[in-house]
Design a protein around this nucleic acid. Structure first.
Length: 581
RNA sequence: UGGGCCGUCGCCAAGUUGGUUAAGGCACUGGGUUUUGAUCCCAGCAUACCUAGGUUCGAAUCCUAGCGGCCCAGCCA
């Protein structure tokens, strides 16, 4: 790949959105002095996926952009690790790699909500001491029963009016490990009749005798998201806490906690503000953590970095590029409306980036032999092929033409269908960068399969020689010399699901029929075959991207490619307006 | 008659302190270039902003009433 064109994806005009509008205002008013501070707060309990990429570009991108006006702007990578039963270090490492891969250098700085456990605990005691939090000793069933429903108010807990002293004592003993899991929880005392379920005395702390990936066994009580997140934001001086729409109902609680703690002198105003935007929805893809896990553990894919998966690890292996993702993020924009982006948009972004940056090479994916019967044996004719049609400065390379060649099986048809203008008996076609050849015959085996095609070349028509352009032929096919090419494993990937809405309703479904998203799995999403490639391709570095002319964009596999066993994954095909009809 | 959010071209998405012919991108269509049926270039593409009323000289932008969609009842995030 070249990097001279790497900036072509960054010349996009910045489109305004409601978050930028807010930030513009806050910048102009110096609300947060000279800072726009955001954060990307993944929970380390799974791998990052395409949806996270949108959030990463949003949060890190905004901080980067606003640094021009507000020089102290920055974005923190913070692990939201408040639930020890679900989180693991391996995810932390994987997430850090993914963030770095998307181009955001956190200078080795990763922050953790767990670093704030002591401060969080202190804040909780402050709330207790002000009568704003209490220890509830009901079991989870009665807690649920008393919460009310969406249309009915909840009822107060019998423990709601415990004295401050008792609450403090109980909470301290919770921390000391005197109680088993579930014996008590600490709740905020707000309003059991609130129409917003989140305000009905939400839990702040729960007892979990579990080993935490960073704090070990130091704690047996852990803060809940609603409490930990806003306090972490305040501690870090986050100005704009961006999250997805489903957290909009939590905003009053976010503001309640921070407002109360500010009153208590724990935090200074201005406080961070939560702003919600709509999450990414993509056709032909599942992005829910639960479903992704099911695909991996159920053996439907080959692991978290399977190129068919919408994980960042999978995308990287597939050959998707960070520039392509950036293009995608810019293209889909940010708003609050529920959107469903066509998967093709993502593919197009990858094509657009790769078209500009990937050098061209020749590969024959599904080879059949072509013999030029009038071509001298034991002769190799060097043909010049440009490495990139738009960048002559990238030079040309030689491809050897010989009597026996490999061509693409689909470039030959005995009985041409309408509109087919590649090789067909009696017709001419140009061997790209070589000569015009005329098909003279073919062999078929007992199964009716074509085994060999014969043609005669016209020595006066070599590409690049004077007069070679005199004769125009419409067909132009790629080829590789049998003697001057090497075998390579070619992994052809396609969409993982057949349905734009995996597991969703489809036309013809009975009214009550429910479908499993696994039923929509595309069994042909992965196809491995042995093709032929230019010899030099075996020497390329892993993760090198190329356009295999007329075939698509391919990447040398991140793990399996080697000089002795070249392996290329198809990132995405070229646009094809012909097969589309 | 629980609460919150959303509804602008096939898909996204500006515009929403009311003011000429409703940005832009993608897709699509037509034309040109082309030794990738690729790329690239040019042109076209919402009398219309969920619907119905209303206010106004003037509304996608304000008001009223509807309709449709998403989210919330974890000691998950």
């Amino acid at each position: 790949m070249t990097d001279q064109a790497a900036d072509t994806t960054t010349n996009n005009v910045v489109v305004s959105n409601f978050i930028r509008s807010r930030m513009d205002e806050d910048c102009a008013n110096k609300t947060y002095s000279d800072t726009i501070a955001t954060r990307f707060p993944p929970e380390p309990n799974g791998f990052l996926h395409f949806g996270h990429a949108k959030s990463i570009f949003l949060n890190f991108g905004l901080a980067q952009d606003y640094a021009a006006q507000c020089p102290k702007s920055h974005c923190n990578l913070r692990f939201d690790d408040t639930n020890p039963t679900k989180e693991e270090t391996e995810y932390v490492d994987a997430i850090r790699e993914d963030v770095a891969w998307l181009g955001f250098d956190t200078q080795g700085q990763a922050l953790y909500a767990s670093d704030y456990f002591e401060r969080l605990y202190h804040c909780a005691e402050q709330l207790i001491q002000t009568g704003l939090a209490y220890v509830d000793s009901q079991d989870s069933e009665s807690l649920r029963a008393k919460r009310g429903t969406l249309t009915e108010a909840g009822t107060n807990s019998p423990y709601r009016d415990r004295s401050i002293e008792e609450n403090l004592d109980l909470f301290r003993r919770m921390r000391a490990g005197e109680f088993p899991d579930g014996a008590h929880i600490l709740r905020a005392k707000i309003d059991m009749a609130s129409p917003n379920m989140n305000m009905r005395d939400p839990a702040i702390y729960r007892i979990r005798h579990a080993h935490h990936h960073r704090t070990g066994d130091a704690w047996c009580i852990y803060p809940m998201y609603d409490f930990a997140h806003c306090v972490s934001d305040a501690i870090e001086g986050i100005s704009h806490s961006l999250c997805t729409l489903e957290f909009a109902d939590h905003r009053p609680l976010y503001e309640w906690f921070l407002g109360q703690l500010a009153e208590l002198g724990e935090f200074k105003r201005p406080l961070p503000q939560q702003i919600e935007f709509s999450r990414l929805n993509l056709t032909y893809v599942v992005l829910s953590k639960r479903k992704l896990i099911q695909l991996v553990t159920g053996g439907h894919v080959d692991g978290w970095d399977d190129p068919r998966l919408p994980t960042l690890k999978g995308a990287r292996r597939r050959g998707f590029t960070l520039q392509g993702f950036k293009l995608f993020a810019d293209r889909i924009g940010i708003s609050k409306s529920d959107s469903l982006i066509d998967y093709q948009v993502l593919e197009d972004c990858m094509r657009e980036d790769l078209n500009e940056r990937a050098e061209r090479r020749v590969a024959v994916l599904d080879p059949i032999k072509l013999i030029l019967s009038n071509f001298p044996e034991n002769h190799a004719e060097p043909c010049l092929a440009p490495n990139h049609p738009h960048h002559p400065d990238l030079g040309k390379r030689e491809i050897q033409l010989t009597r026996e060649l490999w061509i693409e099986r689909e470039d030959f048809m005995i009985e041409p269908s309408k509109g087919f203008f590649r090789l067909t008996p009696g017709k001419e076609v140009r061997l790209r960068y070589g000569y015009i050849v005329k098909c003279t015959g073919f062999d078929v085996n007992d199964n009716g399969q074509i085994t060999c095609v014969y043609a005669e070349y016209d020595p006066t028509t070599k590409s690049g020689t004077p007069g070679s352009e005199a004769r125009k032929v419409k067909g132009n096919i790629h080829w590789l010399s049998c003697a001057h090419s090497v075998p390579a494993e070619i992994r052809l990937y396609d969409r993982l699901f057949n349905s734009p809405n995996p597991g969703g309703r489809q036309a013809g479904d009975a009214p009550e029929q429910t479908r499993d998203f696994l039923d929509d799995l595309n069994p042909n999403a992965k196809h491995i075959q042995i093709g032929r490639v230019e010899p030099a391709l075996a020497q390329c570095q892993r993760e090198s991207c190329y356009q295999f002319e007329r075939n698509g964009y391919f990447v040398a596999d991140q793990f399996d490619h080697s000089t002795s066993k070249p392996v290329f994954n198809r990132t995405v095909t070229l646009r094809d307006t012909w097969s589309k009809n």
